[in-house]
Simulated assay, not measured.
Amino acid sequence: MKHYIDWRKVKKPLEFENITVEIGFGSGDFLIKMAKENPEEIFFGIEKSWIPVNKLLKKCSSHSINNVFCTKLDAYWAIQLLFKDKAIKKIFMNYPDPWFKKSHAERRLTKMENLYLYAKKLISSGEVKIRTDDYSFVEFTLQEAAFLNCFSINVSNPSIDEPLTKYEKRWLSMGKNIWDIVLKKEKEPITLKISEIKEVTELYPVKVSADIVDVELIANKEFKIEDALYIKCFSVWERGQDYALEVLLSENEFLQSFIVTVKKKNDYFIIDVSKFSEVLKTEGIQKALKFLGKIIGKEKL
């Protein structure tokens, strides 16, 4: 298996057991260090940008590391989609963005919904280890974790003789405090309703029974298909009676951007996801194709 895991293509969940995950691995040095010290174990990194992913892949190659894998995806969805329950032994977060404003709390990696998901994926006695320099983030995390009633909680000020990062060195020289939070899973969390998406094996094209379609009815417009399922359509490319347009789909806040094609076939049209678009096949995409097909075919919704 290659170091990079394309979450759209692999069979999910992955077969990894008892692995260590780092959320937001940055330069990748922490993962590389752990992998070198524990060559018999598997380590997995999650990032939202290609820049750190490419840095990590280069370091894996230059250091001949074979026990590190990574993906580029929001941590919540990566944890949910890629890992089996009770498959992770440790989750590390080194200086996650605290999202200082209360209005941004939903973006914090330690909000209750995320911690619930981490707990489900952790083995018994598995741990979430967080290092931060922001005490308000510590307080927020402890409050969210306590509600789930599944973790033992320990907070400490670590002694860092050799700072792991240039930021730690700078903060310590400024006299700033650093906190370590350890959330150890003692039992299963209370049941919590969380955002989920359902993957399907195949996406089937939608037949639009019409001699003529009006793609301009969906161009540069946004639609609510159902609760928590929205689609935004952009400009249309046209060639004869074939069309293509870029769309952005929000499915329980899981975002995917792809190209939708509308092609003439005899006395009907076919609306489908372009073969050049790589997507996670979900129920939401299938519903979106049917919804758009009805509009351009001028059917009643």
Rank of each mutant, 00 (worst) to 15 (best):
D74R: 10
V206K: 11
V182R: 09
S124L: 14
K290H: 08
A288Y: 08
L164T: 08
T201L: 09
P39A: 03
N252G: 02
I259D: 06
S277C: 01
F100K: 14
L289W: 05
L203S: 10
L301Q: 15
K48Q: 12
K184Q: 15
D134R: 06
I65C: 04
Y135T: 09
W171M: 06
T191M: 12
Y118I: 06
K121R: 07
A119K: 01
S49A: 05
R108H: 04
I270C: 05
K290Y: 10
K120P: 14
L31M: 10
M174K: 14
F223P: 08
W171Q: 04
P39S: 03
N252Y: 02
L172Y: 06
N38W: 08
P189E: 01
F254P: 00
V155R: 08
K33W: 12
V208S: 02
S124K: 14
A78H: 09
I194N: 02
Q256T: 00
E253D: 13
W171K: 11
C60E: 03
L249N: 00
I23C: 08
T191R: 12
G26L: 00
P13D: 02
T165R: 01
A228F: 12
I178Y: 02
P158W: 04
F16Y: 15
E222L: 06
M112T: 12
G45F: 05
F276C: 08
N149R: 10
K224V: 07
F234P: 00
A87G: 02
D133Y: 05
V155G: 07
K193I: 11
K89N: 09
T165C: 01
V206Y: 14
L245V: 01
D161L: 12
R8Q: 15
H3V: 10
E113T: 06
K281Y: 08
V182M: 04
L249T: 00
W50F: 09
L31C: 10
E162G: 04
H63A: 03
K2R: 13
A146I: 06
D180G: 03
K120G: 12
D180S: 05
I160T: 12
I51E: 13
N54V: 03
N177A: 10
N220T: 07
N54G: 04
I123A: 04
L31T: 04
R131D: 09
S274C: 03
Y204I: 13
Y135A: 06
P205D: 03
I295D: 03
E22R: 08
E186K: 08
V213R: 02
T191C: 11
S49I: 02
V247N: 03
E106K: 14
E127K: 14
I42E: 15
N266P: 06
K121F: 03
I259Y: 04
F44R: 07
V138E: 12
K232V: 05
H63D: 07
F43G: 01
I65L: 06
N157W: 03
M174R: 11
D6N: 15
V68H: 00
K185I: 00
N18Q: 11
I19L: 15
D134Y: 10
V68S: 00
N266C: 05
I285E: 02
E41S: 14
L280T: 15
V247P: 01
K281L: 09
E216L: 10
A219K: 15
A119Y: 01
Y268I: 04
L217M: 13
P13F: 01
S156H: 08
K86G: 05
P189S: 02
